[in-house]
Simulated scan of single mutants.
Amino acid sequence: MSAPLGTIRTVACPSLRAEPSPVNLRQCIPESAWNDLLSSGSRRSYSPGAPLMHQGRAPGFVVALIQGTVKVTEDTRDGQNVPLALRGPGELLGEVGVLLDQPRTASVWAVTRCVGHSIPSSTFLSLVERNRLTGALHRFSLNRSLEKEAHLQSLRRDSTEARMARFLAHLAREVGEIRGRSTTIHLGMDRAELGLMLRMSRATAIESLGHLKALELIKCGRKHIEVPDIDTLDLYTTRELRDVI
């Protein structure tokens, strides 16, 4: 049986705390280099639902995102459109295809109103050389690989509720919009898509969200989640892990 919400703060286990939110590219490079990227691109606005780039297309540009939340998706061979991640301001989108000179491996869609600077591939490659960004881009890519591995570990190890709590805490730190003392996550996806990201059915995703809501760890909207306190959500995750271990 789950412990009452009031006891959650007493069971912290530092070695099992949810991983820190990964840094974005903006935090990995000098301010001058980021400003150079922005000044070399064309400022564009994207309405909710609009595509920023399409899977399979030639990598003709990258986008430096300065406002809003986007959803990264992949079209699978069996016809599913699977959400992979949400990204926020400070992200660079589409750089892998440009650096490897390969077609896009995923699509990117605006979840909220977004603003970004579109930078042609040739210009971006020149900026990378001029600002000596190769090392920073390598660390950025490695950081994303570690993030993916942490997510896969959670899928293998955690209970459904802990899996959902860990994922929402991660998103709150990564793309959450701070509103007073709480943080709002604009998901841009329904419960079935959320379930796909966490390898659970729509019904299980709804059940997990309902359990966290009943504990007052989250508040649910149609396509957004409000997290009153991210640290408390983290501590719920560690308590669930302790009970499993």
Results as ranks from 00 to 15, higher is better:
F61G: 00
P83K: 07
R57W: 07
R57G: 09
A58T: 14
A85I: 10
Q55P: 00
A85D: 14
R87P: 00
K71R: 15
G79P: 09
T73W: 07
G88W: 12
Q80E: 15
G60C: 09
G56C: 12
R57L: 07
L86Q: 03
Q67T: 12
V62I: 06
L86M: 06
T73K: 01
P83T: 13
F61E: 02
T76N: 08
N81W: 03
G79A: 08
Q55Y: 05
G60I: 05
G68P: 09
T69M: 05
K71T: 12
G88N: 12
Q80T: 12
T69D: 02
Q55E: 13
L86E: 03
R57V: 08
F61C: 11
V63N: 05
T73E: 10
P83I: 02
V63Y: 00
R57P: 00
A64F: 03
D75F: 13
V70N: 07
E74H: 14
V82L: 10
T73C: 08
Q80K: 15
A58V: 05
V63W: 01
N81Y: 05
D75S: 15
A85L: 05
F61S: 10
G56E: 15
G68F: 02
P59R: 03
K71I: 14
L65A: 03
G60D: 11
V72W: 00
P59L: 02
L65D: 00
T73D: 07
G68C: 09
E74I: 07
A58S: 15
L65W: 00
Q67N: 08
G56W: 11
K71P: 11
K71A: 06
G68R: 09
P83F: 04
A58H: 08
P59C: 06
V70S: 04
G56F: 11
G60M: 05
G56M: 13
P83Y: 10
V63Q: 02
V82E: 04
G56A: 14
R77L: 09
